[in-house]
């Protein structure tokens, strides 16, 4: 009998945490109890950045987190964070499950990680306290908090906003006090971090599509027997398959909950979205200077197939 520790940084009721629970049940059943999984969701073993360090050095077997925490380990991940890249979640997973995903797996393996699969964090949407957003002119001068990621920052600069890099722990009070005008996140994160309490306007900008991912320590993974390795892979695949469907189902429910909690929802028209695309068309060019342009083209081709 062997114990595997799996860590996560999402709240208890998030589908990413449920992924961990399904993974545990499946692994233990498939290996007839040879492998026992201990779960540490909800930042019990520290934040996501620390969990990544723990997996890399093998203190923890695997994590379920967002790929944002791997973009500085495997910079190629930035290619799937380009603005307005995916028109649907099906397109997003077509890329991750196809040849591009294979390439990501190789890059992860080179850095000592086994990629166990991807799920949905969701389309990211802008909230703010100044005005409803319908076209890129509405972004003008808004102080929007973004994750520290160059593609993200470039995108909002291109839209005319004033992107601010700020620690997420400060964001709630910063928006309450007016230090920030707004921020962007998937509906479920806006709700679970309660940002709706301090934000008025919500639009379905869907400017980035964000993935959750599961990754294991390569050395620990390879120490498992072949059947155990297969059990781990299959269990996570099953968990992620469930998560993708459930997250898609839940997404609209989360949006409605935000509206019910008092946010004003302004949908983006097709013209508005076309306007956003035009404004941010240059972002891809600056990314091509940092990572292999062939990979970016492959991602774009696959995404728009």
């Amino acid at each position: 009998q062997q114990r595997l520790r799996v860590a996560g940084n999402f709240p208890a009721d998030h589908t990413a945490t449920k992924v961990m629970e399904i993974f545990k049940k499946e692994v233990e059943a498939r290996t007839k109890g040879e492998l026992q999984v201990d779960l540490f969701p909800n930042m019990q073993l520290g934040g996501a950045a620390e969990n990544v360090d723990q997996v890399r050095s093998g203190t923890v077997f695997a994590i379920v987190t967002s790929i944002a925490y791997f973009t500085r380990i495997v910079p190629e991940y930035e290619a799937v964070s380009l603005p307005f890249l995916f028109s649907s979640r099906e397109a997003a997973f077509r890329v991750m499950d196809g040849p591009v995903g294979k390439l990501f797996d190789e890059r992860m393996a080179q850095k000592g990680f086994i990629s166990l699969g991807y799920g949905e964090l969701g389309f990211r949407h802008v909230t703010n306290n100044v005005r409803p957003i319908t076209s890129s002119a509405d972004f003008k001068g808004l102080k929007i908090r973004l994750q520290p990621n160059e593609v993200h920052l470039d995108t909002f600069r291109a839209l005319g906003a004033n992107p601010v890099a700020m620690d997420v722990k400060e964001v709630y009070s910063a928006m309450q006090q007016g230090v920030l005008d707004g921020h962007e996140n998937p509906y479920n994160i806006i709700a679970s971090r309660r940002f709706n309490e301090v934000q008025k306007h919500l639009s379905d900008t869907g400017h980035f599509y964000d993935f959750i991912n599961a990754a294991a320590n390569k050395r620990l993974f390879e120490r498992l027997s072949k059947p155990q390795q297969e059990a781990v892979m299959a269990s996570m695949k099953e968990a992620m398959t469930w998560q993708r469907a459930e997250a898609a189902r839940e997404d609209e429910r989360w949006r409605q909950q935000l509206v019910k909690a008092g946010m004003t929802f302004t949908p983006i028209t097709p013209q508005g979205r076309a306007d956003f695309r035009r404004s941010t068309a240059g972002v891809v060019e600056s990314l091509k200077k940092r990572i292999d342009p062939k990979l970016i083209e492959a991602v774009v081709t696959e995404a728009t197939k």
Binding site: G46, G47, A49, E50, D53, Q54, S57, G58, T59, D167, K169, E170
Partner: peptide, 19 residues
């Protein structure tokens, strides 16, 4: 029988905290 490296990780990330 834990790996010692965890100690350095905990120490750093506990302090690496903007507030």
């Amino acid at each position: 029988d834990f790996e010692l490296v965890m100690m350095a990780q905990r120490m750093l990330h506990a302090v690496d905290n903007f507030p």
